[in-house]
Design a protein around this nucleic acid. Structure first.
Lengths: 216, 216
DNA sequence: AGGCTATTTATACACTTGCACAACAACGCC
DNA sequence: GGCGTTGTTGTGCAAGTGTATAAATAGCCT
């Protein structure tokens, strides 16, 4: 009796454990910030003990880096997925892209908290700044490509500088509305942000209102 | 000889010391994040010893709260200051407002780092979320007021909902471009962001290009 | 069934953290 | 000029930090 009573455990596959630890890290950061994301908190959340982290990651910093990379990957992946409707008109695709970016699950307070917490350290951490830069430029290039298609369909031939300015402005509109939605989502009715975004972007591009909204 | 050699110090006025400690806190957070802002780091930066912090603030949390309040105060104060040109036309005032918000010192990586670091915790800290909400609504109301003036000068009578949507969109444009500028300022030539912002906002409001840019 | 090995736990350690408290000394007041 | 007030320092402490390492055991292979 009064056995040493060591904790029971199961062995998991390496990839599974790494993902669990990364998810637990993101959860911890979202809930308590970077300061509250201690190895013990993370391990507890992942259902393991703290020592195990060092078996999968060289150190805590590496775990945080991989967690941030995973977050960015998921965000850009979701964002770009909305552009895959091949059969629609460029204008519809752009609208769908905006709509996807201004509704759940991309409008999400938890994701925003994570983004803000990590990006706040971009000024001090060059690796983090570079990761952001790449994600941002990738996103903006996607926007620029769709804008080019939209304008081409309207028989307009913008030069490179014009195109770039449109992409910067549209990116800003989406980012700005995304923040407003994440921070004060309940102040907007469903679909309102997307409607505002689409109208603003079409104004930026000088597009006439869609035919369906005009009198026949 | 080998006297105890206690550190020399000067007594400062209460307000001065509090401000120094708050500034040192913001510097520490900007440089090392919330995790790196320890009482010892902050005190060292302020040129005092750690114990003094407890003489001016009940605890570290209170110091952080006051530092965030000070940051928000300075940001909104600077932003609104650009609207004070009484003698200019509404349209010029709006343009000046945008220009002021999209150049130094408001476009600033350090300020952005601080904003992101603090706002990242808004999801978990209700007091912080409320502080943000108030600042945001105040800013948006300013925007809405100028927009109303601009449209009135154009003899247009927007209803409340229309006005609100314009304010939301314009706020998003400014915020989005602000972020782009803070995070990748060197990718834009001086004044470029402001020009993009003004064009996007005038498009949103359906304003014709200014007369000075049209052929006479 | 029984051992092998790598995953997992548990413990230890040096260091940092926020905070408490007593000693001290700078400055105003008489 | 001495003296009291109190701003300021220095030290101490318990709790928590990341990491190192040894001990244990779960699950695969034969």
């Amino acid at each position: 009796m009064n056995a040493p009573s060591r904790r029971k455990f199961r062995r998991e596959g390496e990839e599974r454990r790494r993902q669990d630890l990364i998810d637990a890290t993101l959860d911890s950061v979202a809930e308590h910030g970077l300061e509250g994301a201690t190895v013990r908190t993370i391990a507890l959340r992942a259902g393991v003990t703290a020592g195990l982290i060092r078996h999968y990651f060289p150190g805590k910093e590496d775990l945080l880096r991989e967690a941030y990379a995973a977050l960015m990957g998921r965000m850009t992946e979701q964002a770009k997925a909305a552009l895959l409707m091949e059969d629609a008109s460029p204008r519809r695709r752009l609208a769908a892209f905006v709509t996807a970016n201004l509704n759940a699950p991309i409008i999400d307070q938890r994701v925003f908290s994570l983004w803000a917490t990590f990006i706040g350290r971009a000024g001090a951490d060059p690796a983090l700044a570079r990761a952001h830069r790449e994600g941002y430029l990738g996103f903006r290039n996607e926007v620029e490509a769709v804008v080019a298609e939209v304008l081409a369909a309207e028989r307009r031939k913008p030069d490179a500088s014009e195109l770039r300015h449109h992409a910067i402005a549209i990116n800003a509109i989406i980012d700005g509305l995304w923040i407003e939605g994440c921070l004060a989502g309940e102040m907007f009715s469903p679909g309102e942000l997307a409607a505002i975004g689409i109208k603003a972007i079409e104004a930026e591009l000088g597009l006439a209102p869609e035919k369906q909204f005009q009198e026949k």
